[in-house]
C-alpha cells in the first residue's frame, strides 16, 4: 500500500480471478441501484463537524461507562482516540452506531440527523461504517462475497433475492480489493485469512459502503510491524475523502497517523490536541502515558 497503486484492470482480467457465478445486472436493475444510491440523504456539514456527541452518558448497572461525553469530529478529519482500558472508547462507538442507547445526551450526524432515533441498519445505511475491536468478517464467504455483501446497495430481503452484480459494482469491488491489498485473494475463504488480512478485509467492507464516517476500533491489534505500517498508510490515504475515527492503544501507530488526538478517561474527554501537546499534558501523563507507554 506504500507503493504506488497498481493501475486497475477490470476484475475479470486479473490473472487470479475466479469467475463468479452471479449473472450481470440488466439495465433496469442498474437503474434501481443507481436510484437507491442517489437517494441516500447527504449529511449537512455546513458548520464543519460531521459528528456531534453532546453530554452523552451511559451507565451499566450503575457504573458510568460514558460520563457527559462531548466530542466533535470534522468532515474529512482523521481523529485518533486513545485512553486506558475501560475508558469507554468502544462504548462510544456503540452509541454512535446504535448498538447502545445512552441514558442522556445527543448524537447528531451532520446538522440535522439525530442518530438516537435510528436503528443499527439505518445508521449504517446513512454512511457510518464500523470496524469492530475483534475482526468480524463473514467466515463462510469468500473475500469477494464479503465485499459484495457489504456494498452500498438496496439491502432489503425482497430485492436481495433477485439481486445481480453490475459491471460498475464489480469494478468497485476490484478497486477496494486493490486499496486494501487483497487483490488475488478474492476467491479465498475469509475464515482462512491471516489475522492482519481479516482486519484489512473488514476495512474493505467498510469502504464498500462508501461511508462518510469510518469508525475503526483497534485496527492494528495483533498485527506485525510491517502490517501496522501498511495499515497506517491505508488509513492516512482514506482521510479527506472520508472522516475517520481511529481508536488505538499502539502509541507509535497513533503518532504515525495522528493529526489530532483525543484522550478519553473514565468516560469523558481528558485532553485534546496534537500528539506532542498531549504527551506533554500533565493530566494525561498521570492517568495514561505515565504508566510507561
Amino acid at each position: 500500500m506504500n507503493a504506488p497503486r497498481p493501475k486497475l484492470e477490470p476484475l475479470e482480467r486479473h490473472p487470479l480471478f475466479v469467475p463468479y457465478d452471479v449473472p450481470l445486472a440488466t439495465a433496469a436493475e442498474r437503474e434501481v441501484f443507481a436510484a437507491d444510491v442517489r437517494d441516500r440523504p447527504v449529511p449537512d456539514v455546513s458548520h464543519g463537524p460531521i459528528l456531534y456527541l453532546e453530554g452523552v452518558s451511559v451507565s451499566f448497572d450503575g457504573f458510568r461507562a460514558l460520563n457527559e461525553l462531548s466530542l466533535y469530529i470534522d468532515d474529512g478529519e482523521l481523529r485518533c482516540i486513545i485512553g486506558p482500558n475501560g475508558a469507554g472508547k468502544t462504548t462510544m462507538m456503540d452509541v454512535i452506531t446504535g448498538k447502545t442507547r445512552p441514558d442522556v445526551g445527543q448524537v447528531f450526524f451532520g446538522q440535522t440527523t439525530n442518530l438516537l432515533e435510528l436503528r443499527e441498519a439505518e445508521i449504517a445505511q446513512l454512511g457510518i461504517g464500523r470496524k469492530f475491536q475483534k475482526p468480524t468478517v463473514f467466515q463462510g464467504h469468500s473475500v469477494f462475497e464479503n465485499l459484495e455483501l457489504a456494498m452500498k446497495a438496496d439491502k432489503r430481503a425482497r430485492t436481495s433475492l433477485f439481486a445481480r452484480l453490475s459491471g460498475e459494482q464489480r469494478d468497485r469491488i476490484a478497486e477496494v480489493l486493490a486499496t486494501v491489498g487483497l487483490l488475488g485473494c478474492e476467491a479465498t475463504l475469509a475464515g482462512t485469512l491471516s489475522h492482519g488480512q481479516k482486519q484489512w478485509l473488514e476495512i474493505g467492507m467498510l469502504l464498500m459502503q462508501d461511508p462518510r464516517l469510518l469508525l475503526v476500533d483497534e485496527p492494528v491489534a495483533g498485527m506485525t510491524e510491517q502490517e501496522t505500517e501498511q495499515t497506517a498508510a491505508l488509513l492516512t490515504s482514506l482521510a479527506g475523502r472520508h472522516s475517520v475515527v481511529v481508536v488505538e492503544h499502539d502509541m507509535a501507530f497513533v503518532r504515525s497517523i495522528a493529526r489530532k488526538v483525543t484522550v478519553l478517561h473514565e468516560g469523558h474527554v481528558l485532553a485534546e490536541g496534537d500528539m506532542d501537546a498531549i504527551q506533554a499534558d500533565p493530566k494525561v501523563i498521570e492517568v495514561y502515558l505515565g504508566e510507561g507507554a
Binding site: 452506531t97 441498519a121 469492530f132 463473514f138 467466515q139 464467504h141 439491502k155 436481495s160 433475492l161 439481486a163
Partner: peptide
Amino acid sequence: VRSKFGRVLTAIRDAESRTMFCGYE
C-alpha cells in the same frame, strides 16, 4: 441459497452484528 439473499443468510449465521452494520435488517 445461491442468491444474494442466501449469502446474507449465511452472513447472519457467521456474524449477525456485522450484517447489521452493513445495513441489513
